[in-house]
Design a protein around this nucleic acid. Structure first.
Lengths: 221, 221
DNA sequence: GCGGCGCTGACATTATGCTGACATCGCAGC
DNA sequence: GCTGCGATGTCAGCATAATGTCAGCGCCGC
């Protein structure tokens, strides 16, 4: 999962990055509005956390520009003020959720997870693909009801595939989401990960689309 | 068993009703505080699940009015915020248990069952996980009925795990809860605490999910 | 049949968590 | 104010899971 954090205060930014990283996200940081706008327009994020008070380009404007440009990833607004009007303005600008400072890291992460889940069109914290079920809250996977022991990276990879079930996901994209960059360096690492997952989940759970990527069938028999 | 669910968000309400129904409860739904108050006063429920943020009449006020009117069925408070103060306020209003969002349906059902059981026996509020029982009122723990002497920190850690039984809780989250911050500083302190707890409770009471956190099995053998 | 992408098993490396010993700290009892 | 004890934090070393790397093989699509 990749997240974009937009925050100018170095202290707060560091805390956000730390908390999100600890929660298993790969985090990019933008320190001002222009940078944020550019990053959000160019890169592919699963979620963005945006502070309202920003230098150079206001947070709301950033969100508006993203939406105008067709960017649809969920956005959570952070605001120093707990104003009701702020919340409305944020939602109207195209944000999906809103939190006033001070916030608890735990709650923020929980909300972010909720946003991503909802963005994927689901209300339950479990994802399903054939006999496979992924409990995104407990971070566990079960196959035909049996618990499958996954390493953190394996889980994150599977989680990502499940969120994009039915679509062939290129290895570079996986690399991008797991490691934060898509260098050819770790190309084989992905293959190794896939192999390990297949050993645990059964060879036909994850399909390979030669030249396109990996695919978790949306409703395998 | 009849349950009253008080929740205004349709999505969350639907999930609650579904989960509770699946667990064998007959569920009534109230969408706002006034309706909730009326239903709880007129009907005879075994338990009520109440969201704090409600239109027309606040959740806490609803609980208070029920209690003032002599209604004694157990009440479980749901809150979006995980605030310590919220919990205290809830308990003072007459609620019997408290869960912060996001919650796992399984855990919620387990707690509701526990509430009903306790309401029948009128014992002090306890949490259970396998052979382990935690008396949150006396702040004591018993293992297979035998009293276990725990230090304050040990107790708080165990209590937190018990409240999140069935979920792998990251060490950083524990650190956050116990010390108020999640700095890497005290990472090893958590490990030491866990080790001491295990020495007292038996090695297999607390499970480690490498890379995810610590886990108190929801129904250990 | 050929070329190359992708797969695999073995091995190396790294990260994470456990443990026992020891250092501190705070406080009760004197 | 001292003494002793229980509680807690810190440290270093060890064990092992997790992950990365490599070399070679196989199979797919042309």
């Amino acid at each position: 999962m990749r997240a974009l954090v937009v925050e100018d205060d170095p202290v707060v930014a560091a805390e956000l990055v730390r908390g999100m990283t600890a929660a298993g996200f790969v985090v990019d940081l933008a320190g001002d509005g222009q940078q944020a706008w550019f990053s959000g327009d160019v890169e592919d994020y699963d979620v963005a956390i945006v502070d309202l008070g920003l230098p150079r380009l206001d947070g709301l404007s950033v969100v508006k520009r993203w939406r105008d440009a067709g960017r649809s990833f969920p956005v959570l607004i952070l605001s120093a003020r707990g104003e009701w009007t702020d919340k409305v303005a944020g939602i109207e600008a195209g944000a999906d959720d809103y939190m006033a400072k001070p916030w608890a890291m735990e709650e923020l992460v929980a909300r972010v997870r909720g946003l991503i889940r909802r963005a994927a069109g689901r209300s339950s914290p479990t994802l399903e693909a054939g006999p496979l079920r992924i409990d995104t809250h407990r971070m566990t996977a079960t196959l035909d009801g049996a618990f499958v022991k996954l390493s953190p990276l394996e889980y994150r990879l599977l989680d990502y595939l499940a969120h994009h079930a039915g679509r062939a996901v290129p290895a570079t994209e996986l690399s991008d989401h797991l490691y934060g960059d898509a260098d050819a360096e770790n190309a084989n690492a992905i293959e190794a990960l896939i192999a390990r997952l297949r050993r645990k989940l059964g060879a036909d759970t994850i399909t390979t689309r030669r030249g396109f990527g990996y695919l978790l069938p949306v409703a395998a028999a």
